[in-house]
């Protein structure tokens, strides 16, 4: 990514941060939650490009969220930045370990194995009194570089934190996707034998992708925990993973910003659907998914990229 694009992105994010006085608090909270989901989806894009669809990304999302809750509860750590870093490290470590197994599998086996691991975590969380069981754990409100914003100021502070995280995720995922390892995603999907015979380990490449995606999911979980001030086993449940896959289909894998835009659209649609049809909001989401697959099979990102490709004279 060029310096010009980075600076432009930084300006956009600074502009969004400055928009706070114009936005109602409920919308700020909604955007923050959407960004936590967007962080997970930005990691799923990395795996999706290699033809891997994990149905258990909630494993790492919940790991991040519970790390924040437990670091506050047991270690009395309250600084939001430290908590997010801890959550990222914890999720990446879990992925580094789980990846020893997951990276050997492909297609439906990879998907279902990741789901199985997330459901094991769900079971542990539900059964463990120390981890709050089905009730979960309340997360103490974090501090920000020694400052203790409360009430509306806290919501805004977490929103700003979400913007910083999204900006950093956008830069790093874009940089990764432009690297040799990132560009090998399609090659892995196409022909693993050839990749191996070019001198690079496919299993290790996938392990790395898995770990990066998990780190992003951990960041998303931490943001959700800080925003909601509560964690519970539902965060590791398969429906949570399904939600991330839903947003990935909506966003597509061709554009990183689309992950965050898709997550925001998903949250807005879900909020409206719940308000309009409290007993059948899933029906509305299902319809949206159907329409997306039928009419925008490569996701919202493909609409942006298609225009850019045409602008470049059709070159890839």
């Amino acid at each position: 990514m060029s310096v010009r694009h980075t600076l432009l992105g930084a300006l956009v994010f600074a502009g969004l941060a400055a928009c706070v006085p114009l936005l109602p608090l409920w919308l700020i909270s909604l955007i923050t939650i959407a960004m936590s989901s967007g962080l997970v989806v930005s990691g799923l894009i990395i795996l999706w490009r290699a033809g891997l669809v994990p149905f258990g990304q909630a494993l790492f999302f919940a790991t991040g969220a519970y790390t924040v809750a437990l670091a506050g509860l047991w270690l009395k750590i309250s600084d939001a930045v430290v908590l997010v870093i801890l959550a990222i490290v914890a999720a990446a470590l879990v992925a580094a370990f789980a990846g020893l197994l997951l990276a050997r599998y492909r297609e439906i086996f990879f998907a279902m194995l990741s789901l199985a691991l997330s459901m094991i975590l769900y079971g542990l969380l539900v059964k463990s009194e120390a981890l709050g069981s089905t009730d979960g754990i309340n997360v103490a409100q974090a501090t920000f570089f020694g400052m203790k914003p409360r009430g509306a100021a806290y919501t805004i502070a977490v929103f700003w934190l979400s913007l910083v995280l999204v900006f950093l995720a956008w830069l790093s995922v874009t940089a990764y996707l432009g690297s040799v390892a990132g560009q090998m995603a399609g090659a892995i999907r196409d022909n693993e034998i050839r990749v191996e015979y070019l001198g690079i380990s496919v299993t290790r490449l996938i392990h790395l992708k898995l770990t990066i995606a998990a780190a992003l999911a951990g960041a998303g979980g931490a943001l959700a925990a800080l925003s909601i001030s509560h964690v519970d086993p539902q965060m590791a449940y398969w429906t949570t993973s399904g939600g991330f896959v839903f947003v990935t289909i909506l966003a597509g894998a061709v554009s990183v910003p689309a992950a965050f835009i898709g997550a925001l659209i998903f949250e807005v649609i879900r909020s409206i659907a719940v308000a309009v049809l409290p007993g059948g909001w899933q029906m509305i989401l299902g319809t949206v998914l159907l329409v997306t697959i039928l009419f925008v099979p490569n996701g919202l990102g493909s609409l942006i990229m298609r225009k850019r490709i045409a602008g470049q004279g059709g070159s890839k």
């Binding site: 990764y176 432009g178 690297s179 040799v180 390892a181 990132g182 560009q183 090998m184 990749v195 070019l198 001198g199 690079i200 380990s201 290790r204 490449l205 392990h207 790395l208």
Partner: peptide
């Protein structure tokens, strides 16, 4: 690009494609 990126996946993750 793989040939130039070195032997580890980490070097491949930072080398430009």
């Amino acid at each position: 690009a793989i040939a130039h990126s070195g032997t580890s996946v980490f070097s491949a993750a930072v080398a430009r494609f």
